Each structure stands twice: as structure tokens, then as C-alpha cells.
Simulated scan of single mutants.
Amino acid sequence: MSQLSKNQVTLFDTSIATNNVGDEIIMDAVNREIYNVFAANRICRVASHDKIGISGLSLIRHSDFGIVGGSNILSSKMNKYKQWKLDLFDVFFIPKNVLLLGVGWRQYQQQTNLYTKTILQRILTTEALHSVRDKYTQQKLADIGIHNVINTGCPTMWTLTKTHCDTIPKTKSDKVVFTLTDYDCDEKADKQLVDILLRNYKEVYFWPQGRLDASYLQRLTDAKIHIVNPNLKSYDFFLENNDCDYIGTRLHGGIRALQKGRRTVIIGIDNRAIEKQKDFNLPVVLRSEIDTIENIINSDLTLDIAIPLEDINRWKNQFSK
């Protein structure tokens, strides 16, 4: 940042006004990186999933950057899918200083519409490199003329180095914690997953990452399954104090398990997990291949996650200039 730096950054916080605890996992990693990179700066926050308001717009205007932290917050039709609660009024008052950090694109989508192209070209900075979570997102931005973008993966993965992954057990535990996804149900495949886990583990635990995950599980089975309380602190405590595996459809529930050193298989149900598997070799099995899970559970698992450390450091180091 220049000598005329405002010495302030404002973070679009994706964990505010959400019922998905996965957003907290993302922001935990975003906060870690922001506090490291911008240690000498004032760090302010506005909600991304709710209206910004006049005070929030003022914070962004008086910041060097408004940083968007993670989540699949971009889409081809931002006028219809408004996870990021921006409108044309906001865009008029936001300077061209918005910076992406580990951001992703919602689902596989067709051509980006003019409304979205106009908003993103209007607010995304051209003075720094943006960080996105996969090549698909990078390409979607390139398609609308935004090329100052590098693929760093999601910040939740930045600590999953070879040294860390080598500490994760390769063989099956007696316990498993699993997840399901309330907004993307496949009752046949999801019930098959539950039945496989009940057959192969002595103790089975379920963590409801989303608001309706627990009620969805009740529709699938009446088997005795232990429930981990539906908040991040309880999930962390469980992972830190139990020798267990993680298997489930919640991407960031699985990444959290990897962060905590637990043997993990993520069931891929959308572009987020699928693209991370393509780009970084995250341990993902498609839900359409659920028949293979039993064999995978009972085999040795060796992680070979490829973290793009060079590009991660490029994103971090650009601010020291």
C-alpha cells in the first residue's frame, strides 16, 4: 500500500447473517490470514449476507481495501442469486477497492449477465491480485475481462501442507462423524451412506452444520446416532478429543476435520468439492459413486493435497510493497 494508505481494511464477513456454520469455518481461516497480512492495520467488518447500510459503506470508502472473505459468493446472475447483498445503490458508493480472498463461483453456470459484469468491473480493484478458490472461478472472472486473479484455493486449505497431512492417520478409526446437506438432498444415496457408516463403525456421530440437517437425518433413519451440538466450538471439541474419521457431504465440515488431523473423505455434491479435487487433490468421492465408499473406508488412505504455496505467497506478499 502507498504512503497515502488509510491504514484500514474492511472485511466483508460471510459468517454474519448465515445459518450455515461452514461460513464460520471459512471466516476463521480468513481472519487468520487477514490478521497476519494486515497486522498493522485497523480491521473493520461489514456483513456480506445482509444489507451493508450507510455506516458500512462509509467504512469501505475509508479503507484501502474492502476484502471479500471466501464463500461461493459470486454467480452469473447476481441480480437473482443475492448471497452477496449488493445492489446498484451500494455499487454507486463503493470505490473500486474491493479485493477477493479465496472466493468461489456458485455452481456451474452459463454466461455471466450484464448486471453482474457491470457490478464486478465497477468495484473490483485493478491495483492488486485477487485470490479465488479454483480455476473455474478464475475462468469465470476472465470471461468478463477481470484478469488480475490467481488461484490460491480457499484459505481453509492453506495450512493443509504435506507436513500436516503426513500426521493424519491412514487407517480406519472405530468412530466416525458425518454430515449431510439439507439444501441438496438425495435420499437414496444419503441413506445408503448412513447405512454404510452404521455397518463399518462402532460409534457413529452426526454434526448438523446447516439449520435443517438434523431434521433431514431423521427422515432417513431412526437408528441410534450420537449428535454433536450444532455449533463450531462443539465440533472442534469433538474433533480434538476423539480418534475419529470424517465422512460427509459438507465440504467445510470435511476441511475442518483435515485441519484437526482427522482421516477424511468428502462426498462431492457440487462444483466446490469437485473443483477442489481437480485443482488440489482434495479427498473427494462423488455422491454418484457412493457404492465405492465401503471399500474406501476399509482401505489405507494417503493424502496428497497440493497446496499452491507460490500463489498463496504472491497474494500475501503483494501488500508488503
Rank of each mutant, 00 (worst) to 15 (best):
L141A: 00
T167M: 10
Y136G: 05
L141V: 01
K170A: 14
I168V: 15
P169W: 11
L141K: 04
N151D: 10
S173R: 02
V176T: 05
P155Q: 13
H164E: 06
Q139S: 07
I123A: 11
A142N: 15
K188Q: 13
K162F: 07
G145Y: 01
K188I: 15
Y183W: 14
K162M: 05
P155E: 12
Q138C: 10
K170D: 08
T161C: 10
I146C: 05
K175L: 03
P169G: 09
H130Y: 07
T125V: 02
K135A: 13
T181F: 00
G145C: 04
K140F: 02
L124S: 05
D143P: 01
T159I: 12
D184H: 14
P169M: 08
D184Y: 11
D186I: 09
S173L: 02
T152H: 05
L141C: 01
K135M: 05
C154T: 06
I146E: 02
N148P: 00
L180S: 13
K188W: 08
Q138A: 14
L180P: 10
T171N: 09
Y183I: 14
N148M: 09
K172G: 01
L129G: 00
D186N: 15
S173I: 01
D134M: 05
K140D: 01
Q138W: 07
Q139F: 01
I150F: 03
T125C: 05
H130M: 09
K140C: 09
T167D: 04
F178R: 03
F178A: 08
H164S: 10
C154K: 09
K140H: 02
I146L: 12
D166Q: 14
Q138H: 14
T137Q: 06
L129V: 11
L129R: 01
N148R: 10
H147T: 13
V149D: 00
K172N: 08
Q138N: 10
I150N: 04
T181R: 11
N151A: 09
Q139V: 06
C165N: 11
V176H: 02
K175C: 08
Y183F: 14
D174P: 00
R133A: 06
C165D: 07
T137R: 08
D134E: 13
I146Q: 01
L180N: 12
P169R: 01
L180Q: 09
V176G: 03
C165M: 15
I150P: 04
C165E: 06
Y183G: 07
I150Q: 01
I144V: 10
T152R: 06
H130L: 00
W158L: 14
T171S: 13
W158K: 12
K170E: 12
L129A: 05
V176E: 03
D184C: 13
R133S: 04
Y136D: 04
A128P: 03
T167V: 03
L129Q: 04
E187K: 15
C185D: 11
N151E: 15
E127Q: 15
T159A: 15
T171E: 14
D134Y: 09
V149M: 00
H147K: 12
W158D: 11
A128I: 09
E127W: 02
K170H: 11
H147A: 00
W158H: 15
C185P: 08
T163Y: 10
A142Q: 10
Y136Q: 07
H147C: 06
S131V: 02
S131W: 07
C185G: 04
D186M: 07
Q138G: 02
T163A: 15
